[in-house]
Protein backbone atom coordinates (compact mmCIF):
# COMPACT_ATOMS: atom_id res chain seq x y z
CA UNK A 1 0.00 0.00 0.00
CA UNK A 2 1.29 3.41 -0.99
CA UNK A 3 0.82 5.03 2.40
CA UNK A 4 3.08 2.45 3.96
CA UNK A 5 6.13 3.24 1.90
CA UNK A 6 8.86 5.36 3.46
CA UNK A 7 8.66 8.27 1.03
CA UNK A 8 5.24 9.14 2.51
CA UNK A 9 6.67 9.36 6.00
CA UNK A 10 6.29 12.87 7.44
CA UNK A 11 9.81 12.81 8.85
CA UNK A 12 11.76 12.87 5.65
CA UNK A 13 15.36 12.90 6.94
CA UNK A 14 15.00 9.75 8.99
CA UNK A 15 12.87 7.93 6.49
CA UNK A 16 15.91 7.00 4.46
CA UNK A 17 17.14 4.70 7.22
CA UNK A 18 13.76 3.20 7.91
CA UNK A 19 13.34 1.40 4.68
CA UNK A 20 10.42 -0.93 4.59
CA UNK A 21 12.40 -4.09 5.21
CA UNK A 22 14.15 -2.49 8.20
CA UNK A 23 10.83 -1.63 9.88
CA UNK A 24 10.16 -4.41 12.39
CA UNK A 25 6.84 -6.13 11.84
CA UNK A 26 5.25 -5.05 15.15
CA UNK A 27 5.69 -1.46 14.00
CA UNK A 28 3.80 -2.19 10.83
CA UNK A 29 1.00 -3.75 12.87
CA UNK A 30 0.88 -0.63 15.04
CA UNK A 31 0.65 1.58 11.99
CA UNK A 32 -2.22 -0.49 10.62
CA UNK A 33 -4.09 -0.27 13.94
CA UNK A 34 -3.59 3.49 14.08
CA UNK A 35 -4.75 3.86 10.49
CA UNK A 36 -7.86 1.85 11.34
CA UNK A 37 -8.63 4.41 14.08
CA UNK A 38 -8.46 7.16 11.48
CA UNK A 39 -10.49 5.25 8.91
CA UNK A 40 -13.30 4.82 11.47
CA UNK A 41 -14.38 8.40 10.73
CA UNK A 42 -14.94 7.45 7.09
CA UNK A 43 -17.10 4.54 8.17
CA UNK A 44 -19.07 6.81 10.51
CA UNK A 45 -19.96 9.06 7.59
CA UNK A 46 -20.81 6.08 5.38
CA UNK A 47 -22.91 4.66 8.22
CA UNK A 48 -24.89 7.87 8.65
CA UNK A 49 -25.55 8.19 4.92
CA UNK A 50 -26.50 4.51 4.50
CA UNK A 51 -28.82 4.42 7.52
CA UNK A 52 -30.63 7.60 6.49
CA UNK A 53 -30.81 6.58 2.83
CA UNK A 54 -32.04 3.06 3.56
CA UNK A 55 -34.94 4.10 5.79
CA UNK A 56 -35.76 7.09 3.58
CA UNK A 57 -36.04 4.91 0.47
CA UNK A 58 -38.24 2.47 2.30
CA UNK A 59 -40.41 5.39 3.47
CA UNK A 60 -40.83 6.67 -0.07
CA UNK A 61 -41.92 3.18 -1.18
CA UNK A 62 -45.00 3.66 0.99
CA UNK A 63 -45.52 7.40 0.69
CA UNK A 64 -44.95 9.03 -2.71
CA UNK A 65 -42.51 11.92 -2.69
CA UNK A 66 -45.25 14.19 -4.05
CA UNK A 67 -47.11 13.84 -0.76
CA UNK A 68 -43.91 14.60 1.13
CA UNK A 69 -43.12 17.78 -0.80
CA UNK A 70 -46.64 18.72 -1.94
CA UNK A 71 -48.67 18.49 1.26
CA UNK A 72 -48.80 21.34 3.76
CA UNK A 73 -49.71 19.23 6.80
CA UNK A 74 -47.55 16.92 8.92
CA UNK A 75 -49.72 14.48 10.89
CA UNK A 76 -48.09 11.02 10.64
CA UNK A 77 -49.12 10.14 14.21
CA UNK A 78 -52.83 10.82 13.62
CA UNK A 79 -55.48 8.62 12.03
CA UNK A 80 -55.77 11.05 9.12
CA UNK A 81 -52.13 10.90 8.05
CA UNK A 82 -50.43 13.72 6.15
CA UNK A 83 -46.74 13.68 5.31
CA UNK A 84 -45.98 17.23 4.16
CA UNK A 85 -42.55 18.17 5.54
CA UNK A 86 -43.04 21.95 5.23
CA UNK A 87 -44.58 22.64 8.67
CA UNK A 88 -41.51 21.06 10.32
CA UNK A 89 -39.15 22.96 8.00
CA UNK A 90 -41.02 26.18 8.76
CA UNK A 91 -40.71 25.53 12.51
CA UNK A 92 -36.97 24.93 12.17
CA UNK A 93 -36.51 28.04 10.01
CA UNK A 94 -38.51 30.19 12.40
CA UNK A 95 -36.53 29.27 15.52
CA UNK A 96 -33.28 29.52 13.54
CA UNK A 97 -34.24 32.97 12.25
CA UNK A 98 -34.96 34.23 15.78
CA UNK A 99 -31.67 32.74 16.99
CA UNK A 100 -29.62 34.41 14.25
CA UNK A 101 -31.43 37.73 14.76
CA UNK A 102 -30.12 37.58 18.35
CA UNK A 103 -26.71 36.01 17.76
CA UNK A 104 -25.58 38.02 14.73
CA UNK A 105 -25.54 41.51 16.33
CA UNK A 106 -24.32 40.26 19.71
CA UNK A 107 -21.73 37.90 18.25
CA UNK A 108 -20.37 40.37 15.71
CA UNK A 109 -20.18 43.32 18.12
CA UNK A 110 -18.53 41.04 20.71
CA UNK A 111 -15.99 39.99 18.10
CA UNK A 112 -15.25 43.63 17.25
CA UNK A 113 -14.90 44.48 20.93
CA UNK A 114 -12.57 41.56 21.65
CA UNK A 115 -10.34 42.11 18.63
CA UNK A 116 -10.30 45.92 18.37
CA UNK A 117 -11.01 47.49 21.76
CA UNK A 118 -10.40 45.06 24.62
CA UNK A 119 -6.96 45.07 26.21
CA UNK A 120 -5.10 41.83 26.86
CA UNK A 121 -6.43 41.50 30.42
CA UNK A 122 -10.07 41.97 29.41
CA UNK A 123 -9.66 39.43 26.62
CA UNK A 124 -8.17 36.89 29.01
CA UNK A 125 -11.22 37.19 31.26
CA UNK A 126 -14.00 37.60 28.69
CA UNK A 127 -13.04 34.89 26.19
CA UNK A 128 -13.11 31.96 28.65
CA UNK A 129 -16.40 33.26 30.03
CA UNK A 130 -17.92 33.20 26.54
CA UNK A 131 -16.57 29.66 26.20
CA UNK A 132 -18.45 28.66 29.35
CA UNK A 133 -21.61 29.94 27.68
CA UNK A 134 -20.94 27.59 24.77
CA UNK A 135 -20.25 24.67 27.12
CA UNK A 136 -23.55 24.73 28.99
CA UNK A 137 -25.61 21.68 27.89
CA UNK A 138 -28.62 22.47 25.72
CA UNK A 139 -30.97 20.73 28.18
CA UNK A 140 -30.11 23.48 30.69
CA UNK A 141 -30.89 26.17 28.12
CA UNK A 142 -34.16 24.40 27.39
CA UNK A 143 -35.12 24.54 31.06
CA UNK A 144 -34.24 28.22 31.14
CA UNK A 145 -36.32 28.99 28.04
CA UNK A 146 -39.40 27.18 29.34
CA UNK A 147 -39.29 28.04 33.04
CA UNK A 148 -37.71 31.50 33.06
CA UNK A 149 -37.82 33.29 29.71
CA UNK A 150 -41.28 32.31 28.43
CA UNK A 151 -43.16 33.53 31.56
CA UNK A 152 -41.08 36.73 31.45
CA UNK A 153 -41.83 37.33 27.76
CA UNK A 154 -45.52 36.63 28.30
CA UNK A 155 -45.66 39.83 30.35
CA UNK A 156 -44.26 41.82 27.42
CA UNK A 157 -45.46 40.08 24.25
CA UNK A 158 -49.25 39.92 23.94
CA UNK A 159 -50.66 36.57 22.88
CA UNK A 160 -47.48 34.59 23.58
CA UNK A 161 -48.36 30.95 24.20
CA UNK A 162 -46.70 28.75 26.85
CA UNK A 163 -44.92 26.94 24.02
CA UNK A 164 -43.63 29.21 21.25
CA UNK A 165 -40.78 29.79 18.82
CA UNK A 166 -39.70 33.14 20.28
CA UNK A 167 -38.35 32.08 23.67
CA UNK A 168 -36.33 29.01 22.55
CA UNK A 169 -35.17 31.02 19.53
CA UNK A 170 -33.75 33.77 21.74
CA UNK A 171 -32.08 31.22 24.02
CA UNK A 172 -30.58 29.42 21.02
CA UNK A 173 -29.28 32.82 19.93
CA UNK A 174 -27.48 33.19 23.26
CA UNK A 175 -26.12 29.65 22.82
CA UNK A 176 -24.58 30.32 19.41
CA UNK A 177 -23.37 33.86 20.14
CA UNK A 178 -19.99 32.59 21.44
CA UNK A 179 -19.50 30.64 18.21
CA UNK A 180 -20.03 33.73 16.02
CA UNK A 181 -18.01 35.88 18.43
CA UNK A 182 -15.02 33.54 18.54
CA UNK A 183 -14.83 32.65 14.83
CA UNK A 184 -15.53 36.22 13.68
CA UNK A 185 -12.88 37.50 16.07
CA UNK A 186 -10.36 35.17 14.44
CA UNK A 187 -11.36 36.56 11.05
CA UNK A 188 -11.18 40.22 12.13
CA UNK A 189 -7.89 39.59 13.91
CA UNK A 190 -6.44 38.07 10.74
CA UNK A 191 -7.01 41.23 8.67
CA UNK A 192 -3.49 42.54 7.93
CA UNK A 193 -2.31 45.56 9.88
CA UNK A 194 -1.24 47.24 6.67
CA UNK A 195 -4.89 47.66 5.63
CA UNK A 196 -5.72 49.55 8.83
CA UNK A 197 -2.56 51.63 8.59
CA UNK A 198 -3.38 52.50 5.01
CA UNK A 199 -6.76 53.79 6.12
CA UNK A 200 -5.18 55.77 8.96
CA UNK A 201 -2.62 57.21 6.54
CA UNK A 202 -5.47 58.47 4.38
CA UNK A 203 -6.82 60.31 7.42
CA UNK A 204 -9.57 57.85 8.42
CA UNK A 205 -10.38 57.59 12.11
CA UNK A 206 -10.74 54.39 14.09
CA UNK A 207 -14.48 53.79 13.80
CA UNK A 208 -14.77 54.41 10.04
CA UNK A 209 -11.67 52.23 9.55
CA UNK A 210 -13.35 49.35 11.37
CA UNK A 211 -16.70 49.72 9.63
CA UNK A 212 -15.49 50.51 6.11
CA UNK A 213 -12.13 48.70 5.89
CA UNK A 214 -11.64 45.96 8.50
CA UNK A 215 -15.15 44.45 8.53
CA UNK A 216 -15.45 44.34 4.71
CA UNK A 217 -12.02 42.68 4.53
CA UNK A 218 -13.09 40.05 7.08
CA UNK A 219 -16.56 39.64 5.59
CA UNK A 220 -16.20 36.16 4.09
CA UNK A 221 -14.68 34.92 7.36
CA UNK A 222 -17.55 36.44 9.34
CA UNK A 223 -20.05 34.94 6.89
CA UNK A 224 -18.41 31.54 7.41
CA UNK A 225 -18.95 31.83 11.17
CA UNK A 226 -22.58 32.86 10.75
CA UNK A 227 -23.32 29.99 8.34
CA UNK A 228 -21.82 27.54 10.78
CA UNK A 229 -23.95 29.05 13.55
CA UNK A 230 -27.06 28.67 11.37
CA UNK A 231 -26.20 25.01 10.90
CA UNK A 232 -25.89 24.62 14.67
CA UNK A 233 -29.26 26.30 15.22
CA UNK A 234 -30.95 24.05 12.63
CA UNK A 235 -29.63 20.93 14.36
CA UNK A 236 -30.20 22.11 17.94
CA UNK A 237 -32.64 19.77 19.59
CA UNK A 238 -33.30 19.97 23.31
CA UNK A 239 -34.10 23.69 23.61
CA UNK A 240 -36.85 23.47 21.00
CA UNK A 241 -38.04 20.05 22.15
CA UNK A 242 -38.64 21.48 25.62
CA UNK A 243 -39.89 24.99 24.91
CA UNK A 244 -41.28 25.24 21.35
CA UNK A 245 -44.09 22.69 21.51
CA UNK A 246 -45.17 19.69 19.47
CA UNK A 247 -47.58 21.20 16.97
CA UNK A 248 -46.30 21.16 13.37
CA UNK A 249 -47.68 24.34 11.91
CA UNK A 250 -46.99 26.22 8.71
CA UNK A 251 -46.54 29.66 10.21
CA UNK A 252 -44.03 32.44 10.66
CA UNK A 253 -45.73 33.67 13.85
CA UNK A 254 -43.16 33.25 16.66
CA UNK A 255 -45.82 33.42 19.41
CA UNK A 256 -47.63 30.13 18.81
CA UNK A 257 -46.57 26.53 19.49
CA UNK A 258 -44.74 24.93 16.56
CA UNK A 259 -42.59 21.85 16.04
CA UNK A 260 -39.11 21.70 14.56
CA UNK A 261 -37.62 18.76 12.67
CA UNK A 262 -35.40 17.86 15.61
CA UNK A 263 -38.25 18.13 18.12
CA UNK A 264 -40.33 15.74 16.00
CA UNK A 265 -37.59 13.10 16.15
CA UNK A 266 -37.51 13.50 19.94
CA UNK A 267 -41.31 13.28 20.18
CA UNK A 268 -41.44 9.98 18.29
CA UNK A 269 -38.38 8.60 20.12
CA UNK A 270 -39.99 9.27 23.51
CA UNK A 271 -42.90 7.03 22.53
CA UNK A 272 -42.52 3.34 21.91
CA UNK A 273 -42.54 3.14 18.14
CA UNK A 274 -41.93 -0.39 16.85
CA UNK A 275 -39.29 -0.86 14.21
CA UNK A 276 -40.51 -1.13 10.63
CA UNK A 277 -43.66 0.92 11.06
CA UNK A 278 -44.24 4.01 8.97
CA UNK A 279 -43.91 6.19 12.09
CA UNK A 280 -40.45 4.70 12.70
CA UNK A 281 -39.41 5.52 9.15
CA UNK A 282 -40.64 9.11 9.41
CA UNK A 283 -37.92 10.01 11.93
CA UNK A 284 -35.29 8.90 9.43
CA UNK A 285 -36.89 10.89 6.60
CA UNK A 286 -36.94 13.96 8.82
CA UNK A 287 -33.38 13.11 9.93
CA UNK A 288 -32.23 12.86 6.30
CA UNK A 289 -33.78 16.26 5.51
CA UNK A 290 -32.09 17.71 8.58
CA UNK A 291 -28.77 16.14 7.59
CA UNK A 292 -28.96 17.60 4.08
CA UNK A 293 -29.80 21.07 5.40
CA UNK A 294 -26.93 21.15 7.90
CA UNK A 295 -24.53 19.58 5.40
CA UNK A 296 -25.33 22.31 2.86
CA UNK A 297 -24.70 25.01 5.47
CA UNK A 298 -21.46 23.36 6.66
CA UNK A 299 -20.14 23.08 3.10
CA UNK A 300 -21.06 26.70 2.40
CA UNK A 301 -19.26 27.71 5.59
CA UNK A 302 -16.13 25.77 4.61
CA UNK A 303 -16.19 27.41 1.17
CA UNK A 304 -16.49 30.88 2.67
CA UNK A 305 -13.66 30.15 5.09
CA UNK A 306 -11.47 28.96 2.20
CA UNK A 307 -12.31 32.09 0.24
CA UNK A 308 -11.36 34.21 3.26
CA UNK A 309 -8.03 32.44 3.70
CA UNK A 310 -7.32 32.77 -0.02
CA UNK A 311 -7.93 36.50 0.12
CA UNK A 312 -5.50 37.15 2.94
Amino acid sequence: MAANSPEFSPVAPAAGYLTRSATPWPERVIEIVLRACGVLSIFTTIGIVLVLAYETISFFREVPISRFLGDTQWTPLFVDKHFGIWPLVAGTMLTTLVAIAVALPFGLLSAIYLSEFADERARRILKPMLEILAGVPSIVYGYFALVFLTPLLQKIVPGLAGFNALSPGIIMGVMITPMIASLSEDAIYAVPRALREGAYALGARRLPTIVRVVIPAALSGIAASVTLAISRAIGETMVVAIAAGQQPRLTMDPRVPIETMTAYIVQVSMGDTPHGTLEYKTIFVVGASLFLMTLAMNMLSQRLARKFRGKL
Binding site: A3, I42, I48, I234, G235, E236, T262, T294, L295
Partner: peptide, 28 residues
Protein backbone atom coordinates in the same frame (compact mmCIF):
# COMPACT_ATOMS: atom_id res chain seq x y z
CA UNK B 1 2.14 8.75 9.74
CA UNK B 2 -0.39 10.46 7.49
CA UNK B 3 1.62 12.68 5.19
CA UNK B 4 -0.03 14.25 2.21
CA UNK B 5 -1.97 11.49 0.51
CA UNK B 6 -5.56 10.82 -0.53
CA UNK B 7 -6.42 8.74 2.55
CA UNK B 8 -5.29 11.42 4.99
CA UNK B 9 -7.15 14.10 3.07
CA UNK B 10 -10.29 11.96 2.96
CA UNK B 11 -10.13 11.34 6.72
CA UNK B 12 -9.58 15.06 7.36
CA UNK B 13 -12.57 16.07 5.22
CA UNK B 14 -14.66 13.47 7.04
CA UNK B 15 -13.69 14.68 10.49
CA UNK B 16 -14.43 18.29 9.55
CA UNK B 17 -17.88 17.32 8.27
CA UNK B 18 -18.69 14.96 11.15
CA UNK B 19 -18.01 17.75 13.63
CA UNK B 20 -20.93 19.64 12.07
CA UNK B 21 -23.46 16.80 12.07
CA UNK B 22 -26.28 17.46 14.59
CA UNK B 23 -26.07 15.19 17.62
CA UNK B 24 -29.56 13.78 17.07
CA UNK B 25 -28.39 12.34 13.72
CA UNK B 26 -25.77 10.34 15.65
CA UNK B 27 -28.69 9.11 17.72
CA UNK B 28 -30.43 7.81 14.59
Amino acid sequence: YGGDNWLTRLIEVNIANLAGVPSIIYGL
